[in-house]
Design a protein around this nucleic acid. Structure first.
Lengths: 338, 338
DNA sequence: TGATAATATGGTATCGATATCATATATCAT
DNA sequence: ATGATATATGATATCGATACCATATTATCA
């Protein structure tokens, strides 16, 4: 592959002059500029950004370290990240951790070695030690979707607590009292926050004694398993409404209820945190509160890039941006048929 | 940030010795090794892979240039790519082109400058000029999902033609004659191949005069629009079965049919190329032929990485791997209720 | 007209690592 | 004891670009 030296020789100038032409910096006469451009074309020269990055200390690459691209919520978030990054001239490296802290820190170490300009992180654990690693290297970082115990980070997330409250209240307003919550992994802040919001709503409405919630996974299978276990318990009162802490869980619940011959919403109302992607939905059916995943990805990326740009003197006051959620009432909760 | 020199000075050795310790190469005495490791720890040294890559000419990064991560098929493919790459020690940069050739070549140019070790490409156009760009740089390339006019590339794709034939034959076997196909963009080989398979099946069964197919987009909206237009034509016979060339189109069809009060499968049978992701499905309903998206991503990545490794003397005989599709018969085609 | 600024180009050092070659000591077989 | 081999460490050049400083030419203006 030809280098800047080859181009320089061919054009009869110094390498630095070629550099000026390529980067449109400094002074170059029209005549020389043309000669250089011609040489570039003839040789099929492609500048080596690696070498440039080594000198300039900027790679124009950021990384998104998150749980799983096949989860629709993160899927749309990822797209928001990519679009926003691409607009600003950055590429994105994607890393799936599947909620494993080990995997997470393995990725983070590698990314730091690769000198990415910044990292977007959905931490697998509330006390992620990856955060420390990243901050030790003074690499800009924005945490997405989740809270962490370390407060010295920018965070972009949805209002899990408020959303859970809203959804629970919706069910209560419809007359439900025995409302069961199927949440995600206990180590994840969104799982916890959704439990908190649910409990606050129950307590505020004098339903403390009906509080009934379970931690599990953010997966379809978890929804199936929890539903099975709840409805197979003998001699125990069954819920009249189930609140799924995410969309995959809700799909599992609906599938298993159908399997058991239990009708939604007639026998049991169901609602969910996060909906099913529109482009995969035939009939909108699921009552849910939705977070603006795409916008969250965009916003987090914008913040990250602004941190990258201010890097020499990093700011010390961190932002926590909480996106409001939106309640959509549909048939599954029996609230309104829409 | 400390460099290899800082570590070397602290440990009282030469930089190259530090390099040997880090990379576990060459000979280093136990004593020195310990001193070096201690210095690494104390300084929080992180090797700069950029510098290494500049010398070694390998970045351990590949790129996936495709249409859209939010499309479920590509979504699972992407996950296959990431998993497979990660196992082999590679990171993946994702680029969404949204079927735009301009966007595609913009990304490709940047990726080549970044010296990615290889590129996985879902070309937006049958005659993608990005392919030439990539091959000029002698960067390994694997085309996924689609055919291209240039035959000197490795290709990993699904059997669109065969799958379409299978699905059409299924409908014919059920007694349908007026079968309409809603395909994707005409410039995309999978759209064309699905049309071919459909036509071959129709012709083989003496149904040439019922051939009725339309190009559109691979989107839910396209399914809605085409359905509307078909069923609003007055005085023209309506299809008894619709074949959607991808899952998003099928969702649009089902949604619009429901909107029009047309029952599936009683009034119209519907089937689709590619299904709806299982983890988002409450009741499996859609008859479809599915491609193993995840495996295709894996396989393409494996081939790419093997090409990268053989790079000094690149092979000149290219592989075309065609994954078979799997027919699943469900209620939507009225074939069998399962 | 001379001084100052703007324009145009190049030389050299450097980013942080590693390849290559060189050198020095320890170990071993004969 | 001697040469051969394994072990251990370092000096120097280099990957491909750019930052910084230097120099030369041309333009501009008091």
């Amino acid at each position: 592959m030809p280098t800047i030296h080859d181009v320089a020789k061919k054009a009869g100038v110094a390498p630095i002059t070629v550099s000026r032409v390529i980067n449109n910096s400094g002074y170059v006469s029209e005549k020389v500029r043309n000669r250089v451009n011609q040489a570039v074309d003839e040789l099929g020269y492609v500048p080596n950004i690696l070498a440039r990055s080594l000198k300039s200390k900027r790679t124009n690459t950021i990384a998104l370290v998150f749980t799983d691209i096949t989860n629709p919520f993160f899927n749309f978030m990822a797209r928001g990240v990519e679009d926003s990054a691409s607009d600003a001239g950055y590429n994105v490296i994607f890393c799936n951790t599947d909620e494993s802290s080990d995997q997470e820190s393995k990725y983070v170490k590698l990314l730091l070695q690769k000198q990415v300009d910044g990292i977007l992180l959905v931490p697998a654990d509330t006390r992620s030690n990856s955060i420390q690693l990243i901050q030790d290297q003074k690499t800009p970082l924005v945490v997405i979707d989740r809270c962490v115990s370390n407060k010295n980070v920018d965070i972009v997330r949805g209002d899990s607590e408020g959303g859970a409250y809203l959804l629970t209240k919706h069910l209560i307003d419809l007359g439900h009292r025995r409302i069961t919550l199927f949440s995600g992994p206990e180590a994840v802040s969104t799982s916890q926050d959704r439990v908190k919001g649910y409990k606050r709503a129950m307590e505020n409405h004098g339903l403390s004694k009906f509080v009934d919630c379970y931690y599990g996974k953010f997966s379809r299978q978890s929804g199936i398993d929890l539903t099975k276990s709840i409805f197979s318990k003998e001699n125990s009162p069954k819920p009249t409404a189930i609140f799924a802490a995410n969309n995959l869980i809700s799909v599992g619940i609906l599938a298993e209820l159908r399997n058991l011959g239990i009708k939604v919403p007639q026998d049991v109302a169901v609602c969910s945190f996060d909906g099913i992607p529109e482009n995969l939905t035939v009939i909108p059916f699921l009552t849910n509160v939705a977070q603006p995943a795409y916008k969250m990805g965009q916003k987090a990326t914008e913040i990250l890039i602004s941190r990258i740009k201010e890097k020499p003197e990093p700011s010390t006051d961190f932002e926590e941006i909480i996106f409001p959620v939106e309640l959509t009432i549909r048939e599954s909760s029996g609230g309104k048929i829409g």
